[in-house]
Write a protein that binds this DNA or RNA. Structure first.
Lengths: 148, 148
DNA sequence: GGTAAACCTGTACCTCGGTACCGGTTGCAA
DNA sequence: TTGCAACCGGTACCGAGGTACAGGTTTACC
């Protein structure tokens, strides 16, 4: 039997590129695996799980840097309290909510543009009866005032 | 009276960097303005509007490339029918809806993680009674099955 | 033992939307 | 006229998350 998974197998199993494995290793997200005599990486099953965790965290909106910190925080929590998953998740929740709110406004504007039959940006911008709230969108002061 | 707006004034008025003006000009998003005898750009008021339009379109989720095409499509629509704002907005609406759906799932997972008091990613991944649906998030087959 | 696929390191490159720096010119006001 | 801010073109760089390629070694199988 083989003494571990080859990098190609791990990449395949986790659905990532082989280069990405090495990239994560460089970034400190993935532990350095054992090596064969010839220097080939030999992973254990946990590596696949680790990759899934990373990908899940990414999908939760964390950057790779944040993921690295989270893994750090989880593994050796000896010393000062690094803000853990708990706190970061709460903070991220706020971010995600904001993003959803943003997208919802955008959705509304898009839907309105479709409904109104807008077909020319510059025309719309000057026609003043166009449902795209240009200025509201351009500036950061979003309060969804009526346009026309 | 001055014969037009200087680039600094336009940048200020539209809330963008001067370099960004030139960048947009290079990308074909902003028309090349008049020049002073010495070669300084002299914009008219429309330039500010144009910038606002670009920024609005960006906030609607269009890339600069798409914005450029939209402006092209709007201005000289002589010849084959380039898909206009109408169609693209509809397509973009679908994208935005998908993004919102994604974020909503993420939101739910984050909220669950906070509620359950998760504080360690790797622990959670192996504990199997953690509310973060790692596999569902990692893979693209999202159907929000229950975790524990 | 031969050979092809997989793997290795290192480095360069990609996209996207800008931003920064450089050395030189112009505009404008005192 | 002098001084300084604003502007010019050109080029390089940022950051995030990878991806690609070159040139060489190792593994696995027949």
């Amino acid at each position: 039997m083989s003494a571990g998974l080859r990098s190609g197998q791990v990449a395949e199993a986790a659905g990532v590129n082989i280069q990405t494995l090495r990239y994560y290793e460089r970034r400190g997200l993935l532990a350095e695996p054992e090596r064969s005599n010839g220097g080939h990486r030999l992973y254990d099953e946990d590596a696949v799980t680790a990759l899934r965790v990373i990908k899940a965290a990414q999908r939760l909106g964390f950057t790779l840097e944040e993921v690295a910190e989270l893994l750090e925080a989880g593994s050796h929590r000896h010393g000062r309290p690094v803000a853990g998953l708990q706190d970061r998740a709460a903070a991220k929740l706020v971010e995600v909510d904001a993003k959803i709110a943003d997208l919802t406004i955008i959705r509304t504007a898009l839907a309105a543009a479709v409904a109104a039959g807008c077909d020319d940006l510059t025309l719309c911008a000057s026609s003043a009866c166009c449902p795209i709230p240009f200025t509201d969108l351009a500036e950061e002061n979003r309060h969804a005032g009526p346009c026309c």
